[in-house]
Design a protein around this nucleic acid. Structure first.
Lengths: 252, 252
DNA sequence: CCGTTTCTTGCATGAACGTGCAAAACATGC
DNA sequence: GCATGTTTTGCACGTTCATGCAAGAAACGG
């Protein structure tokens, strides 16, 4: 096996899983761990990954930052939710995707060959989609907010205003049948409102802890939700309320 | 067997498998490995493949690979150049940084606690800076170009037009004393021009292979360069020309 | 705090590599 | 036909590169 190939495979697995283990790679490639570590060091020097004890992780610092903040929390659930959410996609659609770890998981779960147009203000989502050959990616610029992992502000709003989308994957929000869809930050909420206004349908994918909670800034009413992707263990009573408002429930 | 035939077969297998092994080819063709290596050298010089230890790989089969491949090239040099380049930074400055692997290396080399305002249209640069606590990051959105790793187009230009910077780190360009600073892509060049227009000074950091080369699209004249960061091994004659035009040379 | 795992560094080995040279194959001119 | 020059090829040489092993350092976990 060529050194080049090995490093490409490491990049591939990193793109797929977000992390690699030195021992695993060594046995998979049939080389010593030293060789794998040398590869990892080299790739790290080129900025293509970040070394950690035991292996390496994808180098995106925003992914790392957000991942650290809510470290490890509900990873499995988000992966399941993401896979269920991408089931809504159809070839040729145009999407808005905003910030949040769930949306990043969704972006990573999008199949490699699907043809889409995606506009996002999240750096994590953008970098997840940057490698897909048939996705036309529109980055919505503006002032980057490290705590959110997204761009916000007037420039972002102006860029959104020029676009329209079939679906809007609205992330990291509170969800309450009476108070509707709500966000934790004023500037973020403005962008979400603009995206919601210019979308034909809103998709909300949430873990159970977001259900029946509300944040200060209102984005839209509960009736604006077209698709609601939730865990199998979500409380049936709450779901029934949203269903009455017209949301189509989808279980992960 | 004719030399021509052999090289065609190598091209064929490269197209089919994405890689070839020197030993395999030698036994398949019934010639010595030296002959195969000569073929590979020749094809590499013609840009039809990329030589690696053990054989060769396709030079640019997928768009995704192009950025990866480039970043793997001249890693050491770029690291040294990057460290020298960040030496130009002063606290409180505002910067434009555009695309290219060298600029990504520079972004990664920026010290963690320096206070800066940075506007970039490169996803790689943005993600490198997203983690720095005291950097105000402005993402210049637009249509993302996978081959460049940057956003270009009208939206990007409009965003640049609203900003100004003390320094502009201009990346991935050709540099020739007579033809000036040149870019390989029309849309990319437009963005670079806009950034150059709104900057007080231009910094160019290049590996030796960029010196005395030119690309189709002109960005600015040689006299626009304020700082030129080069390797210690850069040809003195070329540097002297740029120095006469007012550039301050800095060795990595 | 100590044991374990993982990591880095230096070193040895063999494989792959480039170069110079000579022989062979081929074309060219007289 | 013969001599000359060019191209191609293989071989021998020293060099570089990738890899694995060993020893010490560092990080992790209890």
């Amino acid at each position: 096996m060529l050194t080049e190939e090995r490093q490409q495979l490491i990049r591939d697995q990193l793109a797929a899983d977000g992390r690699v283990l030195a021992g695993d790679l060594a046995s998979r490639f049939g080389v010593s761990e030293d060789t794998v570590r040398r590869d990892l060091r080299e790739l790290a020097k080129a900025g293509q990954l970040r070394r950690v004890y035991g292996g390496a992780v994808a180098s995106a610092p925003f992914a790392a930052a957000t991942l650290n903040q809510r470290s490890g929390y509900a990873v499995e659930e988000k992966l399941r939710l993401a896979k269920a959410s991408v089931g809504l996609l159809e070839k040729g659609q145009s999407l808005f995707i905003d910030g949040g770890t769930t949306n990043e998981a969704i972006a990573r779960a999008i199949p490699r060959d699907i043809e889409l147009t995606v506009a996002t203000n999240s750096l994590g989502v953008a970098s997840a989609l940057a490698g897909l050959p048939r996705v036309e990616l529109i980055v919505l610029g503006g002032c980057y907010r490290p705590d959110l992992g997204t761009c916000v502000g007037g420039d972002t709003l102006a860029a959104v205003a020029q676009l329209g989308a079939d679906l809007f994957f609205l992330g990291s929000c509170g969800l309450d049948i009476a108070r509707g869809i709500t966000a934790f930050d004023s500037a973020e909420a403005e962008v979400k409102r603009a995206m919601a206004r210019n979308s034909a349908g809103i998709v909300i994918t949430v873990t159970n802890d977001k259900l029946a909670t509300a944040a200060p800034y209102r984005i839209a009413g509960s009736e604006a939700i077209r698709h609601l992707v939730v865990e199998k263990t979500a409380p049936a009573a709450i779901l029934a309320d949203f269903e009455r408002q017209g949301a189509e429930i989808r279980f992960a």
